[in-house]
């Protein structure tokens, strides 16, 4: 069951990547950072899977993933914004977040090899804030990346709490160990479906 959820998540992500790159190279309509985010997620997901099968610690990849996610989605929203203050807010907050995380990793390198609660909280919150600013901008203007943003807010809020308890689940019995991860895989599928729906609404024509 959990394998099925995880692999169908991978599949939908791959489909998303193919569709979005198709639209990107055909019509140049897709935001380059969003496409970059999809490609990055794809690479990360598949390398995590490979490392899992090679029985190596792949937790440091999750750290790379959340930081890359912050940078790419941040730049994505930055390019969607038109107000100068919003643009600079995004850039400054990304810079500050990277600085803080860099300092943290410098002080305690072992944080990089495990679930870094602070990094997860910080990056998720920032991305949610960007998405909310985007929603705010869309109130009176036409909708762009509306469904994708809904997916982002939904998934990041839900998954952040699941990541928080990620370090706890190490010590649970095998029966419950993967429950939160199954839930996470399910949330990922919904998230990717939102992105797919966005493609259908905005770019399929």
């Amino acid at each position: 069951m959990s394998d099925f959820l995880i692999y169908s998540g991978y599949l939908i992500l791959l489909i998303n990547l193919i569709f979005y790159s198709f639209s990107f190279f055909r019509k140049k309509e897709v935001n380059v950072f969003f496409l970059g985010y999809l490609a990055f997620s794809c690479v990360m997901q598949y390398s995590m899977e490979i490392m899992y099968h090679l029985h190596t610690n792949n937790l440091f990849l999750s750290n790379i993933f959340i930081i890359g996610q912050l940078i790419l989605l941040g730049l994505f929203y930055n390019s969607l914004f038109t107000l100068k203050s919003q643009k600079s807010f995004v850039l400054i907050s990304i810079g500050l977040a990277l600085l803080i995380l860099g300092l943290q990793f410098m002080m305690d390198w072992s944080q990089f090899l495990r679930f870094n609660l602070f990094a997860i909280a910080l990056t998720s919150l920032l991305i949610v804030v960007y998405a909310l600013i985007h929603f705010y901008n869309m109130l009176t203007e036409s909708k762009t990346y509306y469904y994708a943003s809904i997916g982002v807010v939904f998934y990041l809020l839900a998954s952040t709490v699941l990541y928080f308890i990620g370090n706890l689940t190490h010590n649970l019995s095998n029966e419950f160990k993967f429950l939160s991860w199954q839930l996470n895989a399910f949330l990922i599928i919904i998230y990717y479906f939102f992105i797919l729906y966005e493609w259908k609404k905005s770019f399929s024509k």
């Binding site: 609660l117 602070f118 909280a121 949610v128 809020l157 952040t160 709490v161 928080f164």
Partner: peptide, 16 residues
Amino acid sequence: AIILYTSLFLMILSVV
């Protein structure tokens, strides 16, 4: 730490 992070996260989120 986990409890603190979770509650802090939710608090900041509600403010946002």
